[in-house]
């Protein structure tokens, strides 16, 4: 349960709107569900909206998704605040989510988190001054045999060591995204 209260001071200044290309993708997803069951598409569309509109879901974005799905805004707020993958506040350009549940803890996730904190000079939950990185922790990401690990966007980085994390940070900074 995310227990999230939406901070209304953080807004998008302009109304987010999908490009016609994105809209076609979104309509394609909606059409996967039977007539009248289009609300089922909400989670996937929120993922797309988050990716499209700056990596987080503002009130404006959620209202727009409600409009696209032809449902009440509250139905979108309910879902967006329940599922912890959704960012309800702006984040850095890259969000590192380090798994810290039992199996990753056993192989050194605590030390990895400390290393990233000192390297980026931020604490868990904070964003670097240049806006490049946000550090978060995550509960079990299903990589228990390949830890310690972190997720950044859709990518899992596994078998991490301090050196590998340093390389990863350098790669993200330089724009040469790791495959």
């Amino acid at each position: 349960m995310s227990n999230t209260h939406v901070d209304l001071s953080k807004r998008h200044s302009e109304k987010p709107v999908f490009s016609s290309e994105k809209m076609a993708e979104v309509q394609g997803i909606i059409s996967q569900y039977p007539e009248g069951k289009h609300k089922s598409a909400i989670i996937r569309i929120l993922h797309i909206a988050e990716e499209t509109f700056g990596g987080w879901l503002s009130i404006e974005t959620m209202d727009y998704v409600a409009e696209v799905l032809n449902i009440e805004p509250i139905e979108v707020y309910e879902v967006a605040t329940f599922y912890t993958m959704f960012n309800l506040e702006p984040t850095g350009k890259f969000v590192f989510e380090v798994c810290r549940t039992g199996p990753c803890m056993l192989v050194g996730s605590d030390q990895l988190i400390e290393h990233i904190e000192s390297t980026l000079d931020i604490k868990v939950g904070e964003t670097t001054k240049d806006g490049m990185f946000t550090l978060k922790t995550a509960e079990c990401l299903g990589a228990c045999g390949y830890g310690p690990m972190l997720q950044c966007g859709k990518k899992y980085h596994e078998h991490l060591t301090n050196e590998k994390v340093n390389e990863l940070i350098a790669a993200y900074r330089s724009g040469e995204l790791p495959k």
């Binding site: 569900y33 089922s40 989670i43 599922y83 912890t84 993958m85 509960e139």
Partner: peptide
Amino acid sequence: RVAPGGGAY
């Protein structure tokens, strides 16, 4: 069809 969740055990 495939449908994704949003990070809820």
